[in-house]
Design a protein around this nucleic acid. Sequence first.
DNA 1: TGTACATCAGTGAACGCGCGTTCACTGATGTAC
DNA 2: TGTACATCAGTGAACGCGCGTTCACTGATGTAC
Lengths: 196, 196
Amino acid sequence: MPYHHGNLREALVEAAFLTAREEGPDAVVLRAATRAAGVSPNAAYRHFADREELLTAVAERCTERLGELMIKRMSEVPEDPDPVTHAWTMLTTSGLAYIEFARTETGWFRTAFGTVSHDPHLEIPNDPYGILTRNLDRLVEVGALPAERRPGAEYAAWAAVHGISALLTEGPLADLSDEEKDGAINKVLEVVAAGL
Amino acid sequence: MPYHHGNLREALVEAAFLTAREEGPDAVVLRAATRAAGVSPNAAYRHFADREELLTAVAERCTERLGELMIKRMSEVPEDPDPVTHAWTMLTTSGLAYIEFARTETGWFRTAFGTVSHDPHLEIPNDPYGILTRNLDRLVEVGALPAERRPGAEYAAWAAVHGISALLTEGPLADLSDEEKDGAINKVLEVVAAGL
DNA sequence: TGTACATCAGTGAACGCGCGTTCACTGATGTAC
DNA sequence: TGTACATCAGTGAACGCGCGTTCACTGATGTAC
């Protein structure tokens, strides 16, 4: 082991990131991260002011992952001759990807949203909020959504998708069967699309 | 101080309940509760198997309070000659009350939903889920909502209202101005109502 | 009505734990002359 | 090219803390006879 780690900051974030995946944000612990990196506890303070700063870095990475999954699922959508249909499908797909992320990566999902201080839209690549607004803008461009209904649409779409994600994973809907969950998800997406 | 407290279980729940109000579920701590009740730490184990059981009791009380606020706000709705209008107003009002609770009692709100083990619909008086379903049933009764659109409607309504609550209080929308928040809330409710 | 005794609801002391953080330090690295 | 030295990135030991939980116990209560 060399005296200098080489990339300790990254190693600490990555270790904490893996912990968050399995056990959520509360399990992110400075000492555990340094242990995983094979380094003394106080070495972390060369790279982070305190635990909070480490957690923020982890949360950012979680948000990035969420955005990546949304992009991935959208890229799998087949072309559609009708631009209106296509735009709706893209919106729905991004919403489904969001929910999929919450269900399959609950620890990361909770970390991404349970952490207070993420600067509003620090330039994260693949920012989920940015993806959503672009999908909604696209609906307006193709004439699927009247421009006067556009303002605030991101709040309605985001709230619905986020809400069902939270209820299904952390909340009281967690013990629905998988079929019931799928039904609930479809209903949510359908109602929002109809209401926009 | 008598040797027997008289109502220790209640005193512990109440102390923890107050802590949850200010600092959220993670701040609920057995030792602190016993301290507040003026009793030794292990006395708690006469009434709860472990910390989790105390937290569950607190979460239940939080859910109750949420339901109470919903009932209260609905009771303030003036009579309306048109039963359809009235039914819609009741639904919207219950949703607004839910969001109001999340914004004004964030600690309790997070406790109510951050805790895993609440038995699904243990008979809580004023159960919020029950209130929602009754409001939706009422919409069908007065002919405002076609019966075939009723199934799953509670998921759509709940998800939207819960989602905006979470985003505004714990999430990335927390630093919107109050006007922007109110705008977002109205848009969410409007879209859901239109989409149901 | 009085009393023995089971039961209930507390006490007191201690356990092991792991955390965040600070202190004074030292080994490795890179740069100026 | 060689070397002095500032700076960077770690170490080691310790701090105070508060937690959940267990142990063996004791004081208060209520009930059967």
